[in-house]
């Protein structure tokens, strides 16, 4: 038990794009409780000092991925970042890779558009109920842990700092989760490379580092997709085998 009530200074980024030309920080003094997370501190501020601070949160248990923010410069979930693990002043900013709505809230709807443009799960025609081996579900299931907090999109320098075709780590992981589904009939590596800018990823693995679900996005989704693409694009032996197979089938099946 704490003998004395500790206090901490938190700096919250404020900006309403319709009113303010520039963002600024507002500093608040918040009492610290044991086990307190950054979201507790922000909620304390909204409940006691300033109700107008825009913040998005839902489950407060690291299950929904709503409260993604940049805490002291690192993309993190506010509900999963303990105050006692941060020293000094805590700065909280929205995910700057997305258009700002207000204060800590950003508009992440572009991600749904990207998802919409991805070919959906297309099952092979098989008799039901499907028989799928346990060993074949594990790889795809890793990506299904994704809580869509979009921290990986925020940290990815291709998305954040450059304008390219690249759709970002979350969506490559999504494509991988569909591709590696044993009952799925499509191969998305080709469109990933041709249309969705997979080649812009330079495997610096920050997405993997910030993932709150500890999904190995680069190692298990992006690189395998790059390798699958290499089968079709850069590997003459594989290309030859593919062509022979196509000819055998008698038609070009895309």
């Amino acid at each position: 038990m704490l003998m004395e009530k500790n206090r901490i200074k938190i700096r919250i980024y404020r900006k309403d794009p319709e009113k303010d030309a520039k963002g600024y920080f507002q500093e608040f003094d918040v009492p610290v409780e044991e086990g307190m997370v950054v979201l507790d501190a922000v909620n304390y501020v909204t409940e006691h000092y300033d109700q107008t601070i825009a913040v998005r949160w839902n489950c407060k248990a690291a299950r929904c991925g709503s409260c993604a923010a940049e805490i002291n410069g690192m993309p993190k979930l506010m509900c999963k970042t303990r105050i006692d693990q941060l020293g000094g002043v805590v700065s909280i900013e929205p995910m700057h890779a997305f258009p700002l709505v207000k204060d800590l809230v950003t508009d992440v709807n572009e991600n749904y558009e990207t998802e919409r443009a991805m070919p959906e799960f297309t099952p092979k025609e098989e008799k039901e109920p499907w028989i799928i081996d346990e060993m074949d579900v594990l790889r795809s299931q890793e990506f299904r842990k994704c809580i869509e907090c979009f921290l990986c999109q925020d940290v990815c320098h291709v998305i954040r700092d450059h304008t390219t075709k690249y759709i970002g780590p979350r969506h490559v992981a999504k494509a991988a989760s569909l591709d590696m589904h044993p009952a799925d009939s499509l191969d998305r590596s080709k469109i990933l490379t041709e249309e969705k800018g997979l080649g812009y990823c330079n495997v610096t693995k920050c997405c993997q580092e910030v993932c709150p679900e500890h999904i190995k996005i680069t190692d298990n989704a992006i690189i395998p997709e790059k390798e699958r693409a290499a089968d079709g694009f850069y590997d003459p032996i594989m290309m030859l085998i593919g062509k022979i197979k196509k000819r055998k089938n008698g038609k070009n099946v895309e």
Binding site: D133, M135, D136, D179, M180, H181, P182, D184, P224, E227, R228, D231
Partner: peptide, 8 residues
């Protein structure tokens, strides 16, 4: 890694 289905 390039295969979707090991059991197949």
């Amino acid at each position: 890694g390039r295969k979707d289905c090991f059991s197949c």
